[in-house]
Design a protein around this nucleic acid. Structure first.
Lengths: 136, 136
DNA sequence: CGGGATTGCTATGATCAACAACAATCTCTA
DNA sequence: TAGAGATTGTTGTTGATCATAGCAATCCCG
């Protein structure tokens, strides 16, 4: 079958991203986390007291869609919210959240290492800079 | 704000793919096509008489999800189906479909060129091979 | 002090893909 | 050649993701 699509970088980008997303999601599912959950956890861990909107801005998730995400994390006792001022609430990891984040980090770092390992050595160092040029 | 995420190739991959997908979708919308529509059109154009399942396999779209896609293309008079045997039906471009495909090709090739142009020259040649290693 | 921006939230709808099930048909093998 | 198993196209359902609009409370700056 003739398939001209794989020669398009844009197509390869989509397929690669899908493949990697599926792989990472499967691994995070073992920790009861989705990718967006894990991203949010990492941001809270790195920025104690951060607000929901700030996370949304960093991850390009609309404010409205942060609600179910944070509710999930709060219901799982991974984060807690403390009032900053009258309207904002700062997010922090619970003890449970800290250990879950450590597990997630392990999964993610192993995943990233395997991802890079799949790229032939001569191309490896170029991947991250090339990708960053596309969305930064 | 500390944001450790962009240093992960997997994260950069997801963000880059999202950004490029949004851009391409916007351009294809001018032709009343979605990305999957355009991909399917290209495959039918390159393989006259191809079956729905074969397209699904090539694009990693489940048979069930090909139904609305092909119905869309057929309703728009871009493709037509002719019985091959008792159960399979071969797909072909209509005249209208051929000219729409030519327009889509123009849009896509311009898009791909701009995508590559955004990548610094020293990384450019490495992008496609690196991406292919991730899903092939 | 007051207008405009920000924050968190509700509610809703669109899109997209995964899954299970099914009937009809094909294909290969014993 | 008969039957088992695979394939095709389809329906229907579900779940995840994302956009949009609107609202009340609060903040911030001129």
């Amino acid at each position: 079958m003739r398939d001209p699509l794989p020669q398009f970088p844009g197509y390869a980008l989509r397929r690669a991203a899908n493949a990697m997303a599926a792989e990472l999601s499967a691994r995070l599912a073992a920790l009861d986390l989705r990718q967006s959950d894990a991203s949010a956890l990492i941001l809270v861990g790195a920025n104690p007291g951060i607000t929901a909107s700030a996370i949304g801005r960093a991850l390009d998730i609309q404010r409205a869609n942060m609600v179910p995400l944070l509710k999930r994390l709060e219901d799982a006792r991974l984060i807690e919210r403390a009032p900053i001022d009258g309207k904002s609430r700062g997010l922090d990891l619970t003890e449970h959240g800290r250990s879950r984040l450590a597990e997630a980090r392990g999964v993610i770092e192993a995943f990233e290492a395997e991802l890079l390992a799949r790229v032939p050595p001569e191309h490896r160092a170029h991947l991250l800079p090339a990708l960053e040029a596309l969305w930064r």
